[in-house]
Design a protein around this nucleic acid. Sequence first.
DNA 1: GATAATCTGTTGTTTTTACAACGCAAAGGA
DNA 2: TCCTTTGCGTTGTAAAAACAACAGATTATC
Lengths: 229, 229
Amino acid sequence: MKNMEEFFPILLRNCPLFAGFDEADLRALLMCLSAVRKHFEKNTFVFVMDERAGLVGIVLSGAVHVVREDFWGGREILTRVEPGGLFGEAFACAGVEKLPVSAVADEESHVLLLDCQRFLKPCPSACTFHHKLIKNLTHILARKNVMLTQKLECVTRRTTREKLLCYLSERARLAGGRAFDIPFDRQELADYLSVDRSAMSAELSKMRTKGLLRYHRNHFELPGAKHEP
Amino acid sequence: MKNMEEFFPILLRNCPLFAGFDEADLRALLMCLSAVRKHFEKNTFVFVMDERAGLVGIVLSGAVHVVREDFWGGREILTRVEPGGLFGEAFACAGVEKLPVSAVADEESHVLLLDCQRFLKPCPSACTFHHKLIKNLTHILARKNVMLTQKLECVTRRTTREKLLCYLSERARLAGGRAFDIPFDRQELADYLSVDRSAMSAELSKMRTKGLLRYHRNHFELPGAKHEP
DNA sequence: GATAATCTGTTGTTTTTACAACGCAAAGGA
DNA sequence: TCCTTTGCGTTGTAAAAACAACAGATTATC
């Protein structure tokens, strides 16, 4: 792992996998894991769909697109990963036989590739960073899990109103009260709930008229439970 | 961990967390983790919403419902967990401050509670089972992640047709060809895609008429890519 | 084999959504 | 200040989905 020092700042600051690490930790760990740095030209594949998944990628420079290609050859960008960002970790840890996505360098990029199996094996040199790493990895997977579950719950509702109430109810719970702010503007909220923006705006209006909620811009208030006779 | 032997079969056979363990492993591990067995009467809480998450639950006997209570007091059952089943693992590993769900014993039940933090700490007695356990846990989280991602991709499509094509395209990819079976009946598929069953049936008919696919019961075939001029 | 139960497809009606086009207000820059 | 940009709400129309009710086919049960 020579010539890695230049990328240490990005890994230490922006990569959740190395949260809580210092430079010395990182240097030791990369040795221990026999991580590989690779270089990709623009539009070349980092991972190819239908391969067996085993590697985690970390973008050091440039940018990588995780893309899905459907049965008819259509290609869709699922996420854009920028320096410090992680990709493929879920597939690698799950050890899926066929990668359901590809990863393509969108610019000329440097990527750090880690073998997921080595994460989980007992560390031969008994390095203590290993444990921190596993903890971080588990955190990342678990948090993503929670986020996905939450989103799925909103999105599976049938109507826009239900989706909104599901989301807002959750935000209220997180805030611990009936008044709270949301981190989305209208377009972003519509995208999150996968509904049309203008239709959602209209629905919000209706709900306000009906007294189901109050709002201004990003600030929302839900009335307490009504006791219907 | 006395009086646990009677539950060993269920743990070894049905609990993914202990996959690959034998009885001796399990006995050692439960000691090492200082796992706690608790008894719950019907309709009592195992976890309470808004608590700090930290424990993983494994149902030994009876059954537990993971439920969500919304802002207005409505309660919805998210999953039913039966003996051998795991619950709360994502929240525990993510260390969420406020549990977004509750867990309620639906029958008189025995539950094994494990402190998630102890999983990830270096094992003081350096037991080798610990590593297997972490591997299993990571597998479980990662696989759930992959499943959730896949479902989310289908469900976020706007129309029933798109949802169907997204799902079927994925199944074809997994099968490695244009012909494949699906593991759902119509009602289950509709539930998975969160659409109405009869509307979905109608949409399938239309798609068949248009030549987008062929099917009989659980068997589907997708025509190859069409080259439009 | 007969009957019941379940699964699937069909149709018509009502409700909801997507889409497109526009107006207004707030924010930012020249 | 003027002008542009951006975000938000509104409206009308066409498309799509939910819903309900039913008929045919398949499977299970006796």
